[in-house]
């Protein structure tokens, strides 16, 4: 009995979520023109599961190197500063000043 009550939940709920995700994701993407978005949403809705599979196979991955999202301004500044320093693009005084500035903004631990 248990498996008959659980089975629809385990299969149907995620299936609807997957279709919902496809429509939401296609609508939100910035790299598609409106007609393409409409086409994908139609495909996902008319041919439910296969449409999503096709959509995912065609979807490009996000470029991992495009802007390290997890770095805040201070960390980005420090990383850039160290790089300039090692490339010899910045002298001792300027480096010390920039370093003080970065750490002056840090919250007291």
């Amino acid at each position: 009995m248990g498996e008959f009550t659980l089975l629809p939940y385990v299969v149907a709920v995620p299936a609807y979520l997957v279709i919902g995700f496809t429509i939401f994701d296609a609508a939100r993407r910035s790299d598609l023109v409106a007609s393409r978005k409409a086409l994908w949403i139609a495909v996902a809705a008319i041919v439910p599961i296969l449409g999503t599979l096709l959509y995912l196979l065609n979807r490009p991955f996000d470029d991992p190197g495009r802007g390290p999202a997890s770095m805040n301004a201070r960390t980005t500044n420090l990383t850039a500063l160290l790089e300039q320093r090692e490339a010899g693009a910045i002298d001792d005084d300027a480096f010390a000043l920039a370093k003080r500035r970065i750490f002056a903004g840090a919250p007291e631990s």
Partner: peptide, 18 residues
């Protein structure tokens, strides 16, 4: 210390560069 919230995950690439 430089992060906005100390509970945030550390950016690994920045960490390894430092």
């Amino acid at each position: 210390t430089l992060s906005d919230d100390p509970r945030d995950e550390i950016p690994l690439a920045g960490r390894d560069a430092l």
